[in-house]
């Protein structure tokens, strides 16, 4: 993984997520009016139409909803890693909120380190953060 890797686009909607991630916290946007969590972050609450929001601290726990193992042809930065895993994690706090990520055995491992045949759906995972640069700490997931 190098500086050429695909970095997340961070706009005003996304910035609080990445600021929290840099502190090792998983935070999800929450309506200041009715407290509904929502993801991906956006300006208005679909339940009460409030445009005020805060960022709620999550436990970092979730379960594997699904996963894929991509093979080439891929973007160059991922071709060299393939086959690797991409998992979709349902957060413990809200079953409608799921995060894309990668399963690793320890922080800093490459995303192709886990044997894909060992990945099981509905198993619990816990978030960890891998520092990529000063601004971006990517969430990855460890099996509990």
């Amino acid at each position: 993984m190098s500086s050429e890797m695909l970095l997340p686009a961070v706009g005003e909607n996304e910035a609080p997520f990445w600021e929290a991630a840099a502190k090792g916290e998983l935070r999800i946007q929450q309506c200041a009016g009715c407290e509904r969590l929502r993801f991906p972050p956006r300006p208005m609450c679909p339940r009460c139409q409030s445009t005020e929001s805060t960022w709620a601290l999550m436990s970092g726990g979730g379960t594997i909803y699904s996963f894929v193992v991509p093979h080439p042809p891929l973007l160059p930065q991922f071709n060299d890693l393939a086959p690797y895993n991409v998992i979709l994690v349902t957060l413990d706090e809200d079953p409608t909120i799921r995060l894309i990520g990668n399963l690793v055995d320890q922080v800093g491992d490459k995303i192709n380190a886990v044997d894909p045949s060992s990945i099981e759906l509905d198993k619990p995972v816990q978030v960890v953060f891998e520092q990529i640069n000063d601004d971006i700490h990517m969430p990855r997931w460890l099996r509990v």
């Binding site: 890797m5 695909l6 970095l7 997340p8 686009a9 961070v10 706009g11 996304e14 993801f39 991906p40 909803y65 699904s66 996963f67 894929v68 991509p70 891929l74 973007l75 991922f78 890693l81 690797y84 991409v86 979709l88 995060l99 894309i100 990520g101 990668n102 995303i111 990517m138």
Partner: peptide, 17 residues
């Protein structure tokens, strides 16, 4: 922005999930 940086790049990956 919430999928591609982790390597979920193509329609086939998205539907594969």
């Amino acid at each position: 922005a919430w999928t591609r940086p982790w390597g979920l790049l193509r329609p086939v990956d998205e539907i594969g999930l």
